[in-house]
Design a protein around this nucleic acid. Structure first.
Lengths: 129, 129
DNA sequence: TGTCAACCTAGATGCATGTCTAAACAAACG
DNA sequence: CGTTTGTTTAGACATGCATCTAGGTTGACA
């Protein structure tokens, strides 16, 4: 295969569940767990968590790889590998424009993960307006 | 991160940040990433994600291990290993009462992870109090 | 006290992952 | 057309992890 192995894995359920399937409210089906666990796993590395943060918080919504690489004491290929992991998890998206490649976050899946983790304990219920 | 790598690592920053340090708003410091990444990694396995859901959604806030084990096609030791992983990540807490061991969720860290993932798109900015 | 059940620990094994170097590919520039 | 720079792929190596079987610990109960 000359091109890509897993370009933009569409995750399968990001489209129809935009906001709130909370984890603490009912037992997670095995299928959903199998789909979402890889996303958590992708965030389970300090380097990738920082990369994700740098991409998500970037001005204009995107970052050049050339700005990401020098922020770590790692080689270019290693950063590229971590970016690919984030890409295959559906957390980011890449686009080449001329010499440089730009990464941007995919908020749909991020929102889904956040909603899943949202715990609303009965003792101290707290709502965002 | 100069603490211990031990069993119930108190995560070190769960107490003072109750609500909203969003990932997409500023770059995550390396230290914070190193502390939070293990929690995401712990959730990065389908079995543990389901265990976490079963614990967090349990009636009365706790579950007996004897109710968790038969829900999977895995041996007892394997379930115990996964529960230990969740425990060492600070996501759950265990207590022995008589013959059985009960697990309950620790909402502080869960809230922190959820807040971190909260994406605040510029089009619909949303602020917590 | 002895025995049984629930749960955990120890050690082994095969697969996955993080990192590197070397090399390939892509785009710009002389 | 060749060279230089940015980025990804390929392959290798060491470490980590999910799972198992076997054995240990704890508590209840006759």
């Amino acid at each position: 295969m000359s091109k890509q192995t897993g370009p933009l894995a569409p995750v399968g359920l990001s489209a129809d569940a935009p906001c709130c399937p909370p984890l603490a409210e009912q037992r997670l089906p095995a299928g959903t767990a199998a789909v979402l666990a890889p996303a958590f796993k992708a965030l389970g590395d300090p380097v990738r968590l920082q990369l994700m943060s740098m991409i998500a918080s970037a001005e204009g919504g995107e970052v050049c790889v050339c700005d990401l690489t020098p922020a770590f004491d790692l080689t270019g290929p290693t950063i590229s590998h971590h970016l690919r992991t984030l890409r295959e998890a559906g957390l980011v998206d890449a686009e080449r424009r001329g010499t440089w490649v730009y990464y941007r976050a995919r908020p749909a899946l991020l929102r889904q993960l956040a909603a899943l983790l949202t715990v609303v304990p009965a003792t101290a219920r707290r709502e965002c307006p």
